[in-house]
Design a protein around this nucleic acid. Sequence first.
DNA 1: GCGATCAGCGGCACG
DNA 2: CGTGCCGTTGATCGC
Lengths: 255, 255
Amino acid sequence: MIKLDKAKTEIEKGILNQDMIILVGDCFVDYLGRATSKLTKGKRLVLIKGDGSIAIHQNRLVKPTNYMVNTRIGCELNEGALIVKAHKQKPAEKLTISFENIHDLKRYEIEATNDLRLSGSEKDLNEILMQDLSMIEPGLKAINQQQCFRKGICDIIAEDKNGNLVIIELKRRQADFAGVTQLQRYMLQVEKLKNIKTRGILLAPSIRKNALELLEELGLEFAKLDFELTPNDKQKAKIKGLESKQQTIMEHLKK
Amino acid sequence: MIKLDKAKTEIEKGILNQDMIILVGDCFVDYLGRATSKLTKGKRLVLIKGDGSIAIHQNRLVKPTNYMVNTRIGCELNEGALIVKAHKQKPAEKLTISFENIHDLKRYEIEATNDLRLSGSEKDLNEILMQDLSMIEPGLKAINQQQCFRKGICDIIAEDKNGNLVIIELKRRQADFAGVTQLQRYMLQVEKLKNIKTRGILLAPSIRKNALELLEELGLEFAKLDFELTPNDKQKAKIKGLESKQQTIMEHLKK
DNA sequence: GCGATCAGCGGCACG
DNA sequence: CGTGCCGTTGATCGC
């Protein structure tokens, strides 16, 4: 158990030093901002980071029960309690943690690096696809990537072998309603702008059954994106569409 | 600095006991699952919870750089390093944290409660609105809430004073493209099902400019949701629509 | 278990 | 700073 006045000093030092601070103790929490919340008294872990983010963790779930980002943090003693306050404007938000006691307080000097290298994001897949769209459909040629319009940014614009403009919406995981309506929104926009008809392809590893129904009702197409994660620095991911497309051709030949 | 074999024992005890475990030390991290990632060696804080969630935190941002949920966690000593592994299936994911050293290790017995009371969610607003929709428009009457259809669940179905069916999509914050297309999707569904025309109202505190354009192009309507957070137990929030509606009437009378 | 949607979404990149 | 959108989205609730 740590004395509250000692804790106050340590927290203030830690904030000044942009340390990572860990607080464990019995507290209750009030939040007022984009919503309001109350957390009744209980033992919690509070994590304060050098960039002014603060999170109250219970012993379940990866997400904190309460949190704030980009705050100014201060603390004070009040009627035998240690109050940690986080504050920010735009939007106006306030988080108040009232500690009845503090079981443990630690602060760590940790530099605020950002060196995660992640592979397999949509952006990675998009870049690989731009090199060759024929795995989606023979003769399909990329025209533009991340084309920005007034009502959204579409992932890929291409042209098929018959000269039709093709709008492609790419999803790295199973596509849902949102992906379908996104694609439709981009298509309507381009069609209105250029006064032409377009084809729309939703490219994803799979699609929800009801979303596929909607897609087909709207006259759009689904194409399976068959990719493999490669934890390799040179190659962010490997798209296996070509092989599966060849398989499809083989199946056709059998008929 | 904590000896790695001692750390191993402590971690294993903590996991068995479903404690909250804090590890601070120099480590590198590999993740393979829905994507792949590598985090180069550095000082990090690892938070393990009783429900099998695990998160690696750097000294910035509220979100962890690496994480996993619902895992089985184990640890082992290997060539002078302590390896913490989290594992799960469906989807298959693996997280490996290799500690070169451990500066600090703590475990805390914290019960896995879930007693956050939050007010001002969309659900709260929906419930209040269902009691009286006249604040949106005189004569508007609620028919159904959270009606589930084949292609989505719409927030509120109502009937206006002329007997038209009105589909309402509610957003607790500024509405965007997604909200507009959601509303449209629900409308088209109901229209097809019942073979009638419907009105669509997007109800939100505000709406993005371009989203409003899209909304209007589609022939849908926007209604301002003027609400106030009340950190009060009896009343989850207070909708001020009535007053603003009266103001609108006053403004009309002035013309 | 999957489906659908909300979230105090957070965070990022671009204009 | 706002806009748009992805995310290893997470988490909840309903079927």
